Simulated scan of single mutants.
Amino acid sequence: MTDIDYAARFEGLSSDRLFELEYPSGDYGRPEDSDAPRDYVEQLLVVLADWRQALLDGTRTDADDYRRSLDSVREAWLQYSFRWVGGPNLPYPFDLPRAEVAL
């Protein structure tokens, strides 16, 4: 059995990437494929579900990578869901820097 590099599937994931899927030509006047971001995230959720099961079964030990990947999906979808042309300027990411959390 080959070892699947689950984490690699989440590299580069951001709200910008989701917008690129919705507006592949870069023309933000009208969505070209409004289902593409949702479809992509759904595929990633299936990957996360498989990865989670492997962690629970004990066949994988990369829980920290799993958590980072899960957080990247959450952040990208949150940012994408509440972002639109002319909308509010949101911080990216919403997480506080580690130094701020420690205070």
Rank of each mutant, 00 (worst) to 15 (best):
M1E: 13
T2N: 13
D5W: 06
A7K: 09
E11G: 03
E11T: 09
L13T: 02
S14C: 02
R17Y: 14
F19C: 06
L21S: 03
E22F: 03
E22P: 05
Y23D: 06
S25P: 01
S25H: 03
S25T: 08
G26Y: 05
D27A: 07
D27C: 03
D27Q: 04
G29Y: 00
R30F: 14
R30A: 15
R30S: 15
D33M: 10
D33K: 12
D33Q: 12
P37I: 06
D39S: 14
D39L: 15
Y40T: 10
V41R: 05
V41W: 04
E42P: 08
E42I: 15
Q43V: 11
Q43T: 15
L44E: 00
L44N: 04
L45M: 14
V46S: 09
L48K: 04
L48F: 06
L48Y: 03
A49P: 04
D50G: 08
D50F: 09
D50E: 12
D50Q: 11
D50A: 09
W51D: 01
R52M: 10
Q53C: 09
L56W: 11
D57A: 13
G58K: 05
R60G: 05
D62F: 05
D62W: 02
A63H: 12
D64L: 12
D65K: 11
D65Y: 07
Y66D: 01
L70K: 14
S72R: 12
V73N: 04
R74F: 14
E75R: 13
A76T: 05
A76H: 05
A76M: 02
W77N: 08
W77P: 05
L78D: 11
L78A: 12
L78C: 10
L78T: 14
Q79Y: 09
Y80K: 00
Y80P: 00
S81C: 01
F82R: 13
F82A: 11
F82C: 12
R83K: 13
W84F: 14
V85E: 08
V85G: 05
G86W: 01
G86F: 00
G87I: 02
L90H: 10
Y92A: 15
L96F: 08
P97H: 06
R98G: 10
A99C: 04
E100S: 08
V101E: 01
A102P: 01
L103A: 12
L103G: 15
